[in-house]
Amino acid sequence: MLEVKNLNVFYGNIHALFDVSFKVEDGEIITLIGANGSGKTTTLHSISGIVPLKSGNVVYDDADITGIEPHKIVLGGLVQVPEGRRIFANLTVQENLEMGAYTRTDASEIKRDYDVVFTNFPRLKERRKQQGGTLSGGEQQMLAIGRALMSRPKLLLLDEPSMGLAPVLVDEIFEIIQQINKNGVTILLVEQNAYKALSIADRAYILETGRITMTGNAADLKNNESVKKAYLGG
């Protein structure tokens, strides 16, 4: 479904990604884990076209999407939930979801998708008329995911969905991610919470200062000694 080949990204003179390559197959949950500044967000940004590539290719659904503008990439069903949620704080929950369906014109289908989002996130239904900025952190994350679902993604890029959330909410969000995956959406998940990410993912890639240093089944990596030491606290 998605293949990234030899990505090289520079911020000014700083070489941020070194020949990053990986693959996401249909229906998988893939996670990229790594410490702060290891290039996880940069990788997602370069896939969705926000950050320009120095070299390398991004192939999505058998088409080369390298260098295509971000808003066009969304049309193909590759949707990113940006880091820090970035919901529209002054719009209501309902309006935020409407924005998610911006590229679509099928009114009756959109209506059905509201119901899908509201059954996934009953809390959002309760707060439909409330301004996005007044929601709690967990609810905002749910709204950000719900908004992305409104554009009917085939591949969802999630950037640090657990950021700043209480452990109970983290569990809830991860359950929802699994649920979304079961409904047929492929997921590329970027996380610092390596333990949770490895628990739900099929496969994982480990990023260190812009290079992929390890890859394998999530379950294997979870038991790998060096991974344990570096990311799972012993």
Binding site: V79, I87, N90, L91, Y102
Partner: peptide, 12 residues
């Protein structure tokens, strides 16, 4: 409200 979010919603 948020340029990056607008972009990731498919808005040019």
């Amino acid at each position: 409200e948020d340029e990056i979010a607008a972009n990731s919603m498919g808005i040019n």
